[in-house]
Design a protein around this nucleic acid. Sequence first.
RNA 1: GGCGCUGUCGUCUAGCGGUUAGGACAUCGCCCUUUCACGGCGAAGAUCGCGGGUUCGAAUCCCGCCAGCGUCACCA
Length: 508
Amino acid sequence: MIVKTDKQVINMRHNSQRARVRFAPAPTGYLHVGSARTALFNWLFARANGGDMILRIEDTDVERSAAAYEEDILAGLRWLGLDWDEGPDMGGPHVPYRQSERDDLYIRLVMDLIERGEAYYCFCSEEELAARREAMLAAGKTPRYDNSCRALSREEVERRLNDGCIPAVRYRVEPSKERDAEYGIRNNEYHECVVKDLIKGEVSFRLDEIGDFIIMKSGLKPAFIFAGVVDDALMGITHVIRGEDHLSNTPRQILLYRALGFGLPQFAHIPLILGSDRSKLSKRHGATSIIQFREEGYLPEAFFNYLSLLGWSPSETDLEILPRQKVVEDFSLKRISSSPAVFDTDKLKWMNGQYIKQAPAHYLLELALPYLHQAGLMAADDSQFTEDWLLDLVELVRTSIDLISRIPDEVSFLFTSMPEMTAEAEEILAMEASRTALNACMSAFARHEELQYDIIKSDLDDIVAATGLKKRQLFQPLRAALTGRVHGPELVRIIALLGRDRVLQRLK
RNA sequence: GGCGCUGUCGUCUAGCGGUUAGGACAUCGCCCUUUCACGGCGAAGAUCGCGGGUUCGAAUCCCGCCAGCGUCACCA
């Protein structure tokens, strides 16, 4: 039992009005793009409406759940800047927030359903079920449970239980008894259940087509479909925002809300994110974890922006670069598209480039440092390179990269004593005019104590005027000698960054 | 196979009964530039999945079809 403070009591009173949403991942895999987007839309909805965001871990599949996945999921959410108001790491009024710690609750509710005849024990083995499914499929029928354990007498159930058989529990679906307008269940010949979805509209399913389904796995472990309903209801979730792949089990969940005497939340099923082959995004489409995007050099702000625009559009539809706050202010379920979207890395990269161009240099440097260390260009405790110098370096490359991880390759020559020469660079240096150009630069630069941007620029202008060389004939060999390459960022700034001594050394 | 969702430039999308169907990424060209980028300008790219209707008028409304995807587990 939790003793509530006054403040919490006030909060509880407001619950009927206050929006409460939840992101409920199963820690059976990394946080991938699809689930990250679901989390994002939940978060946006909460923040846009002044509501609460709840994080709940659905670890009812003991076999596949792993702590490492849970950590990855939390890390991914944090990286994206998504926070939550209640969750396994911080607690809250509906603790615990990990389903594996709520077994007592599920068992109590299931026992109640069994007593009321709404659910029953099922002793069918997985092998039996699989065989029956095969047979139905072979006969060209829709595979579903044949409800055989419904018929078991009380005594038979007792006997098997005493024999040590471990049953599962099924919900008893009886369409003719399910009619209930409050839950969208219509008393017509099909026994329709109409799901009122905020995105899909009214979607109708036939109840006479679903068989009795498992709500408790053997070993008294709750099934997802049951635990989700119980928790959403008890945690006061007002809006269930989840992937479209959950739409078809919503009618089953509605049956459970009704059986348990819970009111219905609002549903919003968001379209899936597809890979370039137009199938549901999965591991085989590349990046497995959101964290991998961080490692590849994406900015969380850019990723957030891109993901927001995947399936949602702002009211001012020409805008693409939308900072977090703008998205929050403008977010509405109404502007979520109902068709699935293909994840486009090209556009993500472009957007990342946009964010790199406008981000504060200090921030970029902070992000770039690990890559510079990793590439072995500088040690983590290196004091040889001053912060000012590093900031200049960031300014030098920010317009030419779309991924932070590209920085080391772009500027490696600034860290070595002599640059590695590409074949093209060698070729240019072998040309006759090149020696003239380099000699001119050498004598010009040698006259200064320190090479500064303006000085270098005017020196180079002077050389062009004095020697009659084309700009190209001057810059190309100079670039080749200093960087070992024929392409790259603005040369004058590179010279300033290299400093007088290293420039003169390389010109020889 | 049953059920369900979806279908506007290659991709993300705007549009919701009257627009030359708009924007962005990618592509191509030009300009800027020592170069590669950035940036600027421009081009190309959509018979609005297909076929019928309704209407003076349809991407927008109705019907049928097709295709793609999802889902049919003691996974979530």
